[in-house]
Design a protein around this nucleic acid. Structure first.
Lengths: 155, 155
DNA sequence: AGCTAACCTTGATCGATTCAAGAAAGCGGA
DNA sequence: TCCGCTTTCTTGAATCGATCAAGGTTAGCT
């Protein structure tokens, strides 16, 4: 969890004004990776007092535009935010409880995969979302499925 | 575009009743890959007359559950549907106009990638979404970015 | 200290989807 | 062919996540 000084520096260095809602939201995102907007609103209000929902939406947009925060949205989910940026990491989502964990990208920058046929597109990103069952939701899972020899290299 | 007989067979073989809305929606999805729900409602009504919005939502859910149709939802998009199922293919999305194209999966079944660290999850799917600019939105795009030697194998 | 543009507050609105109650119909069995 | 029943459809209401909008507040620059 970054200090107040660190949060202020992050904001100033990207040309953003230092305001109480911005400090609050950035802190909340740092402390709660992959949180959705409703959770960020709640946490922000618990930790820093009254903040309008519009401010949270605006701040998240500003932080994302500035590259301080990354927005993700796995299929079936609302928008979520994380402060881990710049390494093109992927995510793994639990089908049962919705838990999300980070997965390092083997390449470290986008795009990390090349489509087998790109239809003439200029590809600049390959987003990989792994899905499965997390340890907490799995009482007994077949280990054969984790056999690396049956699958290709990681994204 | 499948014939009426083929659509009926698809429904019967998966234990679904053959109803007019179901025939209509399945036909619409076959004819308009990656269409969103609103488009499917419009097309269904144009081609087959009055159908309630609730029926379309219910039919799409039933067809997806039955495996006849696949739901996708790239980040920033609403739910979309396609009839191409069973081959774990991926998608490429244009950042400018939102166009979506299919990308063959090099493996052909899920999961086609192994996460570099899986946090104890049992992974059963790796969804890959490529993003970039489609030919129609790109007036001149740098060919270097398509250099296959600088990127890893396709998903 | 003053000014200004950016930011925040408050409330309204919208689009996508789900919920809910009752009517309609597909299908199996007689 | 007819009947009954469960599934499906219709219609309208509700919810949720996010955006729009007008006006007040304030961070930062001069």
């Amino acid at each position: 969890m970054p200090t107040t000084i660190e949060l202020e520096s992050l904001l100033r260095e990207t040309g953003l004004r230092v305001t109480r809602p911005r400090m609050a939201v950035l802190g909340a995102v740092c402390e709660h990776p992959h949180a959705d907007t409703g959770s960020i609103i709640d946490v922000t209000r618990e930790d820093f007092g009254a903040v309008s929902h519009q401010a949270v939406y605006d701040v998240l947009r500003a932080l994302t535009d500035a590259g301080l925060v990354r927005q993700i949205q796995p299929a079936g989910s609302v928008a979520r935010y994380e402060s881990r940026v710049g390494d093109n990491h992927h995510h793994i989502v639990c089908r049962a409880c919705g838990a999300i964990a980070d997965v390092d990208c083997a390449v470290g920058e986008a795009p990390c995969l090349t489509p087998s046929g790109n239809h003439g597109y200029v590809v600049d990103e390959a987003e990989v979302i792994y899905r499965g069952i997390c340890p907490d939701c799995s009482t007994d899972y077949p280990s054969e499925k984790n056999d690396p020899l049956r699958k290709e290299t990681s994204a």
